[in-house]
């Protein structure tokens, strides 16, 4: 595969992009290459993710967007044969260093998957599990408070407060997905990764999740992989277009969807991909 073709069109985004007060980039990826055995899935991708903003990763199936997302909390470690090269810096520390505990990393970088995957436990325990194992709560009262706060933040509290002991799996698909988001929030992450979080949901449940994403943006760095360009346009401030393992274009979401710089981006977003 040709690795030289993917010179990404980086726009000067210093003026247009929302930043945290200190303008910090929460995650800084440098020259990321991912291999599955001999096959290279990601070609030398460098990009960073700002705090308090939603970055959407879009591109056709197999373009590497999910693979790239999974690098950010070392989910690719769980895949045999998968090798990640390059640096991923959080607070100046390379998350791929040997002394970084992946479990601890994943509490800082939470993840929400395509299919809601609540634990086979009660609603309460789904949320309480993380804070318990990470020792974030001092006693029952404290834990109750964390559960309530997380469910409130995920916009689910009013719907489940009277049945916290019911199994998480008894909720509707959209509620289960919000439960998973609440579960991710409960361990006080800095980053939330979402891998097509709405593709199994109906439009109403999707709208609820999107409203939630917009709400969470004020606190977290959010990275979302989505097949729906309209969703990327609706929820993100920055959009990155991947194709054949290359980062083709990264820019302000408005610019990407109204006036992309790269022909491949234009062809993809207007539905001209051959």
């Amino acid at each position: 595969m040709d690795t030289t073709q993917g010179t990404p069109a980086m726009m000067d985004d210093t003026l247009t992009l929302p930043r945290s007060a200190d303008g910090a980039q929460r995650i800084d990826c440098r020259n990321i290459k991912v291999f599955y055995g001999q096959a290279q899935a990601i070609h030398d991708v460098s990009m960073s993710f700002p705090d308090r903003a939603v970055t959407a990763l879009i591109g056709p199936s197999g373009c590497g967007k999910s693979t790239f997302l999974r690098c950010l909390n070392r989910m690719n470690d769980t895949i045999e044969n998968c090798r990640v090269e390059g640096e991923i810096l959080m607070d100046g520390e390379n998350i791929n260093d040997e002394d970084v505990d992946p479990v601890l990393l994943r509490s800082r970088v939470g993840m929400v998957f395509q299919k809601p995957n609540p634990f086979p436990k009660s609603i309460y325990d789904n949320i309480a599990y993380g804070p318990r194992i990470h020792g974030l709560a001092n006693g029952r009262e404290d834990l109750d408070a964390i559960v309530e706060k997380s469910l409130r933040r995920a916009g689910l509290w009013e719907e489940v407060k009277d049945r916290l002991t019911a199994p998480g799996t008894s909720l509707s698909g959209g509620q289960q997905q919000r439960l998973c988001i609440a579960r991710a929030i409960a361990v006080q992450p800095e980053v939330i990764l979402m891998d097509e979080p709405c593709s199994a949901l109906d439009p109403i449940a999707t709208a609820r999740i999107e409203e939630l994403i917009d709400d969470l943006r004020s606190r977290y760095c959010i990275v979302i992989v989505t097949h729906s360009m309209q969703q990327a346009a609706r929820v993100s401030q920055r959009t990155a277009f991947f194709h054949l393992g290359n980062l083709v274009e990264l820019g302000d979401t408005n610019q990407i969807f109204t006036n992309p710089r790269e022909k491949r981006t234009e062809d993809y977003i207007t539905g001209r991909f051959g």
Binding site: Q230, A233, F257, T258, N259, T265, E266, I269, T270
Partner: peptide
């Protein structure tokens, strides 16, 4: 169609 890019313009 929810037009994007050049189509939208």
């Amino acid at each position: 169609r929810q037009p994007m890019g050049h189509d939208l313009r």
